[in-house]
Computed example of a mutant assay.
Amino acid sequence: MYDRLLVPVDLGDTSSLDNALPVAAALATGPNAEVHVLTVVPTSGMAVVGSYLPEDYAEKASDGAKEMLAKALEEKRALCEPVTLKGHVTRGSVYQEIIHTADALNCDAIVMTAHSPDLKDYLLGPNAARVVRHAKQSVMVIRG
């Protein structure tokens, strides 16, 4: 059905991998199918906040995320065999990085988890809702 899928994950919540990865693997049916797993390290936001962080904070956060993602993918690889898994770490706004990465990797679809909505999510809009609204690709949202 799809050749290239993007699975954005929150490394602080393993259910995002456990729930979305098997679905993405099942949808990746092309002979050279790939599942790209993305984690986004959020930026510090306002410059005034960033000024209180160590100079190398962003690099250390990205390096730590790369290590955590590599370990998580190794542990979960069996959920996706024989589909190829590739990990990616970016920095920035979560939903914007998901959309940008899906476009840059020429993905056919995005498979992501979303938690049960709280009242604040109806007012502000969670990342999943923003991705659904703005992505060019098909988006499957799995309840986590």
Rank of each mutant, 00 (worst) to 15 (best):
K71R: 12
L119T: 08
S62A: 11
V111W: 00
E59M: 07
S138F: 13
E55T: 15
T113E: 07
T90I: 05
V83Y: 02
Y57L: 03
K76Y: 06
D56R: 07
E97H: 01
T113W: 04
R130A: 06
V131K: 05
A61E: 15
D63R: 14
A72C: 04
C80M: 10
G125Q: 03
I110G: 14
L119D: 06
T90W: 06
D63A: 08
D56M: 02
A102E: 10
L119Y: 13
V111Q: 02
Y57G: 01
A58T: 07
L124Y: 07
P117W: 14
K120P: 10
Y57K: 02
R91T: 04
D121F: 05
L124N: 11
E67K: 13
D108Y: 11
A128K: 09
T84P: 04
A128R: 13
I99K: 00
E59F: 03
L85H: 06
L73F: 12
Q96V: 02
A72L: 06
G87L: 13
V139C: 10
M68S: 04
K120D: 13
L85D: 11
E81A: 09
A72D: 03
L123D: 10
Y57V: 07
L79C: 11
K86L: 13
N106I: 14
H88W: 06
A78S: 15
K66F: 03
V111R: 02
G125H: 01
A72P: 12
V94A: 02
P82V: 15
G125L: 00
A128Y: 12
A102K: 10
K60E: 03
Y122Q: 09
A102N: 09
I110W: 13
E75N: 15
A70H: 03
T90K: 10
A72S: 08
A61N: 15
Q96W: 06
V89C: 04
D56V: 05
R130K: 08
K71I: 11
H100D: 00
A65S: 05
M112W: 09
A58G: 04
T101I: 03
E97C: 01
C107K: 09
A128H: 12
H100L: 00
D118A: 06
K66Q: 13
V89A: 02
K66L: 09
A72Q: 08
N106G: 10
H134M: 09
D118S: 08
D63H: 09
S93D: 14
G64P: 00
G92L: 01
V89S: 03
T90A: 10
P82F: 07
V94S: 00
L79G: 14
E97F: 02
H115A: 08
